[in-house]
Lab assay of single mutants.
Amino acid sequence: QIFVKTLTGKTITLEVEPSDTIENVKAKIQDKEGIPPDQQRLIFAGKQLEDGRTLSDYNIQKESTLHLVL
């Protein structure tokens, strides 16, 4: 699982696999929060994550925290 922290300070927990794409993660966030993926920007280690890449591409491991910017 990974954590996604929103600007409001809320933390969302997501069940993911390293092979999941960023697009996939955004879809999971939409399921939980109702935020359309095209409004979501995910930041990890100061980098904006691209939809077509996977979590493992960015070396995002379990218990990692991503930041969600709208």
Rank of each mutant, 00 (worst) to 15 (best):
residue 32 K to V: 13
residue 48 Q to S: 11
residue 22 I to W: 02
residue 34 G to E: 04
residue 7 L to Y: 15
residue 65 T to Y: 08
residue 64 S to M: 11
residue 38 D to I: 11
residue 34 G to W: 03
residue 32 K to C: 11
residue 53 R to D: 05
residue 3 F to M: 06
residue 65 T to R: 05
residue 12 I to S: 02
residue 37 P to F: 12
residue 64 S to W: 04
residue 51 D to R: 04
residue 5 K to R: 13
residue 33 E to I: 14
residue 20 D to Y: 07
residue 43 I to W: 15
residue 32 K to T: 08
residue 49 L to R: 00
residue 9 G to V: 02
residue 23 E to A: 14
residue 10 K to N: 08
residue 37 P to G: 08
residue 15 E to A: 09
residue 32 K to F: 07
residue 4 V to E: 01
residue 53 R to C: 12
residue 17 E to Y: 11
residue 33 E to L: 14
residue 18 P to D: 10
residue 46 G to F: 04
residue 45 A to K: 14
residue 42 L to H: 00
residue 27 A to N: 11
residue 17 E to D: 13
residue 17 E to N: 12
residue 12 I to V: 06
residue 7 L to S: 15
residue 11 T to R: 08
residue 57 D to I: 03
residue 29 I to S: 01
residue 38 D to E: 12
residue 30 Q to N: 09
residue 44 F to W: 08
residue 39 Q to W: 10
residue 40 Q to S: 04
residue 68 L to I: 05
residue 58 Y to E: 03
residue 22 I to A: 02
residue 33 E to F: 11
residue 32 K to D: 03
residue 54 T to Y: 07
residue 27 A to V: 11
residue 43 I to Y: 15
residue 6 T to Q: 07
residue 43 I to A: 05
residue 67 H to Q: 11
residue 28 K to N: 03
residue 46 G to R: 04
residue 22 I to N: 01
residue 12 I to Y: 06
residue 62 K to M: 15
residue 6 T to L: 15
residue 45 A to C: 15
residue 3 F to G: 03
residue 37 P to D: 04
residue 12 I to N: 01
residue 67 H to I: 13
residue 40 Q to N: 03
residue 39 Q to D: 08
residue 4 V to S: 00
residue 6 T to H: 06
residue 63 E to K: 07
residue 30 Q to Y: 15
residue 9 G to R: 04
residue 8 T to F: 13
residue 34 G to Q: 06
residue 30 Q to I: 03
residue 13 T to E: 08
residue 27 A to E: 10
residue 24 N to D: 13
residue 3 F to H: 11
residue 6 T to Y: 12
residue 14 L to D: 01
residue 49 L to K: 00
residue 63 E to F: 12
residue 57 D to C: 04
residue 36 P to R: 08
residue 30 Q to S: 11
residue 15 E to D: 13
residue 63 E to L: 10
residue 46 G to S: 05
residue 55 L to R: 00
residue 52 G to W: 11
residue 13 T to C: 11
residue 12 I to F: 11
residue 65 T to G: 03
residue 31 D to W: 08
residue 52 G to A: 12
residue 48 Q to N: 10
residue 54 T to F: 06
residue 9 G to H: 05
residue 13 T to F: 08
residue 60 I to L: 04
residue 11 T to D: 04
residue 58 Y to A: 03
residue 38 D to C: 15
residue 6 T to D: 07
residue 15 E to V: 11
residue 50 E to Q: 09
residue 41 R to M: 12
residue 52 G to K: 13
residue 70 L to V: 14
residue 14 L to V: 09
residue 45 A to M: 15
residue 30 Q to A: 14
residue 30 Q to W: 14
residue 46 G to D: 08
residue 1 Q to Y: 14
residue 3 F to V: 06
residue 69 V to T: 10
residue 46 G to M: 04
residue 26 K to G: 00
residue 3 F to E: 04
residue 14 L to F: 04
residue 9 G to W: 03
residue 22 I to H: 01
residue 50 E to T: 06
residue 62 K to T: 15
residue 70 L to R: 08
residue 54 T to K: 10
residue 23 E to M: 14
residue 43 I to P: 00
residue 50 E to C: 11
residue 64 S to G: 07
residue 70 L to C: 13
residue 26 K to M: 05
residue 13 T to W: 08
residue 61 Q to A: 11
residue 56 S to A: 13
residue 18 P to I: 12
residue 6 T to M: 15
residue 9 G to C: 08
residue 1 Q to M: 13
residue 42 L to G: 00
residue 28 K to E: 03
residue 60 I to P: 01
residue 6 T to P: 04
residue 36 P to A: 10
residue 16 V to P: 01
residue 22 I to R: 00
residue 17 E to C: 13
residue 11 T to N: 06
residue 47 K to T: 13
residue 22 I to P: 02
residue 47 K to F: 10
residue 40 Q to I: 13
residue 48 Q to W: 12
residue 49 L to N: 00
residue 6 T to G: 07
residue 54 T to V: 07
residue 16 V to S: 04
residue 3 F to Y: 14
residue 25 V to C: 05
residue 16 V to Y: 14
residue 64 S to T: 07
residue 31 D to A: 14
residue 58 Y to R: 01
residue 69 V to F: 12
residue 54 T to H: 06
residue 16 V to D: 00
residue 45 A to V: 06
residue 12 I to H: 03
residue 5 K to Y: 06
residue 8 T to P: 05
residue 69 V to P: 01
residue 62 K to L: 15
residue 50 E to N: 06
residue 62 K to V: 14
residue 2 I to Y: 05
residue 51 D to P: 07
residue 65 T to C: 09
residue 41 R to E: 11
residue 62 K to F: 15
residue 7 L to Q: 14
residue 3 F to P: 01
